[in-house]
């Protein structure tokens, strides 16, 4: 099933997607035409990935970040994982206009992991306060000493 899906995608976008024989996902390292691929995923009658289940950003260290999209088709009942792994300063095209659920998920990925999405309709923090510094799920994140003048407890011995 997965091979068939990957064949369909490979036929259209030959050079932009990578697929390892043993893995169950497809990898994109150059996101410039990601939006075209995304549009193809939802429009093609053999794919019809109309439901974006999850969008998880992750930090790979060494200035590389990744984002994993988990798709499902409610009509054809099949599943696909797409990953984009890029340098942390590259912007990923937003898919919020294709799957509107991506709107909040991309805001969350920006908020927690610091991913940058281009053409997002409403990019701002979602879970953390708007004046928070840094992105906590980055591997090199250090807890700030103060937040708005309030000390952030480092010594947690008195909690016990």
């Amino acid at each position: 099933m997965l091979d068939k899906i990957i064949d369909i995608i490979n036929k259209k976008f030959k050079d932009s997607v990578l697929h390892n024989e043993n893995s169950n996902y497809i990898l994109i390292e150059n996101p410039s035409n990601w939006k075209l691929i995304a549009d193809y995923l939802i429009q093609n009658s053999n794919l019809k990935f109309d439901y974006l289940m999850s969008l998880s950003g992750y930090d790979l260290t060494n200035d590389k970040v990744g984002v994993a999209y988990n798709f499902y088709s409610t009509k054809l009942k099949h599943y696909l994982e797409v990953r984009i792994e890029i340098d942390s300063n590259v912007e990923i095209p937003s898919v919020a206009e294709i799957w509107r659920t991506a709107n909040w998920h991309e805001r969350e990925a920006y908020d927690l992991v610091g991913l940058k999405f281009s053409n997002h309709p409403d990019m701002k923090r979602i879970l953390l306060p708007e004046d928070w510094d840094g992105h906590p799920l980055k591997k090199d994140y250090e807890t700030p000493e103060f937040y708005n003048g309030m000390p952030v407890p480092k010594d947690k011995s008195y909690w016990e």
């Binding site: 999850s54 998880s56 950003g57 930090d59 509107r100 709107n103 909040w104 799920l137």
Partner: peptide
């Protein structure tokens, strides 16, 4: 875990 992400149903439902 190196990274754990929870896809929360109510999060999407609220949007």
């Amino acid at each position: 875990p190196d990274r754990l992400k929870m896809r929360s149903p109510a999060y999407c439902n609220l949007s």
